[in-house]
Design a protein around this nucleic acid. Structure first.
Length: 426
DNA sequence: TCTGGGGTCCTAGGACCC
DNA sequence: TCTGGGGTCCTAGGACCC
């Protein structure tokens, strides 16, 4: 029988922080987005205080202090490292692991055993991750990925499932969907949930019980696919190619933002460098490059400005220096010197991505590609051996300041020898 | 004072083709 | 009065995900 598992880490970022802060195990915790902007992760205790996902920090700062909530700036180095540990452990439990996000993965559980076996197997896997990595997870097992997601939410909601909910029969499926909000179904967002409510569809079961013809008459193909999945027909599979079709690096800046062109050049050069690293990391080249920067969209009383410049290269590249060069040229072209705009956010996007071994050559190419590749290889080699960004383009600057606020970041416990947790100090 | 970052997919509409 | 039909490709914008 075709069965999918979904392993979902509970409140992942908060759980990561707790791994090295066992004193916070029962305490309310939140993690903030980049630049300490919004709440992006909450422990169960914080959820019970009524804190909502995406709330700007400054709006609830007082509430957080009153309830002694421990607040962390986001520490993606730590989360990425612990995610890797979780994924590697999960991969031992299935012939086919599909990581779906930093804290979730689908597992192929087809034809592995009867219901009793699978239920115990899922529970054992959850207990293993908890014990070995320190992260609590919820496992759902069902005939489609959408249903596996529903099952995992039940596993999280009720402790009685011991970390794993098996939804293998039609009976269990119907029962689960009858008390599951349609808006919580994978693929049904806020907007669709509102539209569905207009048709008196509020529970997942309400949608599943409609005719396929009715669904396809009123909604697009995505909703039809979700409808099929809710009825046990598997038809959604996440993109299995690991290569991204676009690569973006962008950040918000603290306080007033950035007014100085030279500083903005420095930051965007870093974003471009990071993008090029990611690009080479997946053995790709790109021929589309966009740079953008804009003033705060919340400060409507001040004059705003948007820089948004794109270029298409005749020959795709993944060389940092070349990409940085185009980004700076476009940034300077879009920058207004007439007024001192305070740019609050900036970024670089690479697109038109192709495999690096399938780059279309150009008869009139002015770049010596062989030389360029050799240089890039040498730089990557040095940086791999000596640490990231030991050799870099000069315009990127030498400071490690990112222009973002992150006052409450926890140490890089697992990735920097100087920040190892101390278990015992004399 | 203060509002994240990084993706994917679908659709509608325009340009263009014969 | 009246203005083909059918197709592809591209793009911007919207919706969704975590």
């Amino acid at each position: 029988m075709q069965l999918y598992g979904l392993a979902d880490c509970n409140n992942f970022y908060c759980s990561c922080e707790r791994v090295f802060r066992p004193d916070l195990r029962e305490a309310p915790v939140v993690v903030l987005s980049n630049n300490d902007g919004c709440i992006i992760a909450r422990s169960e205790e914080s959820k019970r205080l009524g804190l909502k996902m995406g709330t700007p920090y400054y709006q609830v700062r007082h509430l957080l202090e009153t309830h002694h909530v421990t607040v962390f700036s986001s520490n993606y180095t730590l989360y990425g490292s612990l995610s890797g540990r979780v994924m590697s452990l999960l991969s031992r439990y299935t012939p086919q692991l599909e990581p779906y996000s930093i804290d979730e993965a689908f597992l192929d559980f087809s034809d592995m055993g009867d219901a009793a076996f699978l239920k115990a197997y899922g529970e054992r896997m959850a207990a293993d991750v908890r014990r070995s990595v320190g992260i609590p997870i919820s496992v759902g097992i069902a005939p489609t990925r959408t249903l596996a997601k529903v099952a995992s939410k039940y596993a999280k909601r009720y402790a009685g499932y011991r970390g794993c909910c098996l939804m293998d029969t039609d009976d269990k499926r119907r029962k689960a969907l009858s008390s599951f909000d349609v808006g919580d179904v994978w693929g049904i967002g806020r907007h669709l949930a509102e539209t569905l409510a207009g048709h008196d569809i509020r529970l997942a079961a309400d949608l599943a019980d409609k005719d396929e013809a009715w669904v396809s008459r009123h909604f697009n193909v995505n909703v039809v696919r979700t409808w099929k999945e809710l009825n046990g027909i598997s038809c959604i599979s996440p993109d299995d190619s690991p290569e991204k079709k676009s690569i973006c690096t962008s950040r918000s800046f603290a306080d007033e933002g950035v007014t100085d062109l030279h500083l903005l050049e420095e930051y965007t050069a870093r974003f471009a460098t990071r993008c090029a690293d990611k690009l080479r990391g997946q053995a790709s080249c790109c021929s589309g490059i966009t740079v953008f920067a804009y003033t705060s969209r919340f400060r409507t009383e001040q004059p705003g400005h948007v820089i948004h410049q794109s270029t298409v290269l005749p020959v795709a590249t993944n060389a940092t220096a070349e990409i940085v060069g185009h980004v700076l040229r476009m940034l300077r072209a879009g920058f207004r010197t007439s007024a001192r705009y305070a740019y609050k956010k900036a970024g670089v996007v690479l697109w038109n991505i192709c495999p690096q071994n399938a780059v279309q050559q150009d008869l009139f190419d002015v770049v010596d590609r062989q030389k360029q590749t050799a240089l890039q290889r040498a730089v990557d080699h040095i940086n791999r051996r000596n640490g990231p960004d030991k050799v870099h383009v000069a315009v990127r600057g030498f400071s490690s300041d990112t222009g973002a606020r992150c006052d409450r970041r926890s140490p890089h416990y697992t990735t920097d020898v100087n920040e190892l947790p101390v278990a015992f100090a004399r």
